[in-house]
Nucleic acid binder design. Structure first.
Lengths: 351, 351
DNA sequence: TTGTAAGCGTTATCAG
DNA sequence: CTGATAACGCTTACAA
């Protein structure tokens, strides 16, 4: 023969054709067997499987993706991976979705909408089966790309209007209101909110708003100081924030934090300044982190449905990917965990 | 004409050919422009870019990957995403590598070698440019797949013999020894180690071994109790572990923990039982977590080079992917941070 | 520098 | 149920 073809890359990889050859069938049959085993006769199926095993054949997902014009990849964008709350959610998503053959392509936006857009762009060029974003705040371009893509899109960890497709989360304003109400019911009359990166963390900002609203509604005082510690190591930032706050507003008797690490830092600072928690100041955090129930005093906090969000996304996505429709907004609620840092003798508490 | 071709999937997607057509050049020129812009004349380059912009062309990475038989994807397997230490490393890796056009495919093994193998298998079918695994412990099959793959492989967060390719991390036994030595130099004479999931967390196990070794070498006593709290919420498990330990071995005066959350839980328990830290018992944790320096007492701990590992992996990988060779073992060391939980009046401390 | 055309390893269509 | 065969969108030898 001497086929003087333009010799091309020589991939020694085992291909579907190799399997077909060895088992004496056509490549299409192998392909069919792989995708829908019951549409192939048992005899051939067995023979094919045998060939696959002996050759150690591994399907080339990229070729398949190209031919089928889709992948079993789901793009996920979270603000930060270091934040264990999102990590829990993603972890659970991976658990469920990987069982159904989906891979997660994960990226973090560092709380930047611009970064998010760039990630979405990259992910989209993998023709993902679906996309999952955190929050509802995106650039116009991100929205455009996603809307015109026709794939399922989930926005998680936040609820609101103007969803791209499906929202799964809870209301952060409600959280803020619940936190404030709890403090007020415990006897606090002068609240403050201390948060990290408030300028970029939209959800923390919403909780702050909730706190302020509750102050207005329940105390009639619109004055609720909101302090942004910015970036940097949170616990230390919280100490400084508390020091400042106490200097400028010594009558504060209740503080809500955007997360439990901040609350812990504040506890340390209070201890250092001889301020008693919760007698002088009651504290409520957010996140119910691993340590929150084990420090002294134990931190009252709000447990967001972090695992539940992941599970629910998996269910919703699997549903959508099978062609079913899914609710547009799924509220998973949250839980206020009252612990020592906000349990005062005064107040309306029972017992 | 009436080419009665088998009409196929109608992808309305903008392709490279569309760009070529609009800009009046061939597809290969567009391809070249995209990959090596300076090998295309300025005139054409401008025209091509213009076409790309007007059409909103997004390259199909899968087609490219198939043709080039490689992707700009790097597979990463960590034991857990919820563990913020690995998260920090991964976060930094993504930062550096995404700048060079690489995507991370992330998976967590839940500390199971079997799970890891399955992830490696899946990742490999994406023809990744490289793989990054955590630790040195893998199934035989995982090793085989990786060894025969000819792509760069990094094992991170641990050092040892028998590397697959490149190891980047530090010695956990050294950490254990350093922790024990510090306690002993502070006057402790009866040490214990409390760890979570020791049966599966090989690195924590190594630190425990290091502690025990140091006890033998420095105290001449081989007896160093090693307690595994298992899974479950760590801080609570730590409380129980300490309670048990104190009941059975009341003369313990120094405890090393496999992470700072455990240490924090123990602090709470000690406080509850009236045990003074560090006077009665000195504590050393691991991880230097966000809260470690801000609780009371501040937790002495070991800071692993979490960010550095990520940065170094990126550098090494980029190097390898350009065809250079890289050291086989890169030791990034660690830092012992002495804080209140282990600062006793007795001991050899200066000042 | 730019163009031509042969793959890359699958899946989808359609005929048997 | 099985098998040809034409895409899928791009890269890359090689020719011009």
């Amino acid at each position: 023969m001497s086929s003087q073809q333009r010799s091309r890359r020589s991939t020694k990889r085992v291909t579907m054709t190799d399997v077909a050859k060895l088992s004496g069938v056509s490549a299409s049959t192998v392909s069919l067997y792989l995708r829908r085993p019951d549409e192939v006769s048992d005899t051939l199926g067995r023979r094919i499987q045998e060939a696959i095993d002996t050759l150690g054949y591994v399907p080339n997902l990229m070729a398949g993706a190209l031919a089928a014009a889709k992948t079993r990849v789901i793009g996920v964008v979270v603000p930060s991976m270091v934040n264990s709350m999102f990590a829990s959610t993603v972890s659970r998503m991976q658990l469920s979705l990987s069982r159904h053959g989906y891979q997660l392509l994960l990226g973090h936006s560092e709380y930047s909408e611009q970064q998010e857009e760039s990630l979405v762009r990259t992910f989209m060029s993998w023709s993902p089966s679906a996309m999952v974003l955190t929050g509802l705040q995106h650039t116009r371009e991100t929205r455009r790309i996603l809307t015109s893509s026709a794939i399922p899109v989930v926005e998680m960890w936040e609820l609101g209007s103007n969803a791209l497709d499906t929202m799964i989360g809870f209301s952060h304003e409600d959280v803020g209101r619940a936190q404030a109400r709890h403090l007020i019911e415990s006897g606090c009359r002068r609240l403050a909110f201390i948060g990290a990166r408030l300028s970029v963390d939209n959800r923390a900002q919403l909780r702050a708003t909730g706190v302020r609203t509750a102050c207005r509604d329940l105390l009639g005082s619109a004055d609720c100081r909101i302090i942004d510690t910015g970036t940097g190591r949170m616990a230390e930032a919280a100490r400084e924030a508390l020091r400042t706050l106490l200097a400028e507003q010594p009558d504060v008797d209740g503080i809500v934090f955007s997360n439990d690490v901040l609350a812990l830092g504040a506890i340390a600072q209070a201890q250092a300044q001889g301020v008693r928690i919760p007698e002088d100041i009651a504290l409520v955090g957010f996140g119910d982190m691993d340590f929150s129930n084990c420090c002294v005093p134990a931190i009252s906090t709000v447990r967001p449905p972090r695992e539940e969000i992941g599970d629910r996304i998996a269910v919703a996505l699997l549903d959508r990917l099978q062609g079913n429709t899914v609710e547009t907004s799924i509220d998973l609620g949250f839980e206020l965990l009252v612990r020592e840092s906000s349990t005062r003798r005064i107040g309306l508490a029972t017992s």
